[in-house]
């Protein structure tokens, strides 16, 4: 696979998603990055095939009386890229605390 050059920000977002922070706003909370940075980073990751997005079950949304949320998960190639990124950016793993229940 052709290596895609990722910035530290993107790496951090990928790390956060890998750590179980599935939603855009959760990623913002845990990384402390502004929304105008996180979302474009996630779009780029999705375009590169490192993350995949899905809609949560309608039932859950219905229970909370809000629209279904979109959540992101790391793909196989995303996990591979993350392993590389961890070597490049030391302390990447430590920058994100594991999410509850993951």
């Amino acid at each position: 696979m052709a290596k895609t050059f990722l910035t530290y920000t993107s790496a951090l977002v990928l790390e956060a998603i890998a750590s179980g922070y599935k939603y855009g706003f959760d990623v913002m909370d845990v990384t402390g990055l502004p929304s105008g940075t996180v979302y474009p980073a996630m779009r780029k990751l999705e375009r590169n095939g490192f993350v995949r997005s899905k809609w949560e079950q309608e039932k859950a949304a219905w229970r909370n009386q809000r629209p279904a949320r979109r959540y992101y998960t790391v793909t196989a190639s995303g996990a591979e890229a993350l392993a590389d990124l961890r070597k490049r950016f030391h302390g990447l793993q430590r920058a994100v605390a594991p999410a509850e229940g993951s």
Partner: peptide, 16 residues
């Protein structure tokens, strides 16, 4: 403030 981020996000999509 976080919602303001939707604008760069939208523009990014618009461009790409």
């Amino acid at each position: 403030i976080r919602c303001l981020g939707s604008l760069p996000d939208a523009l990014w999509l618009c461009r790409h």
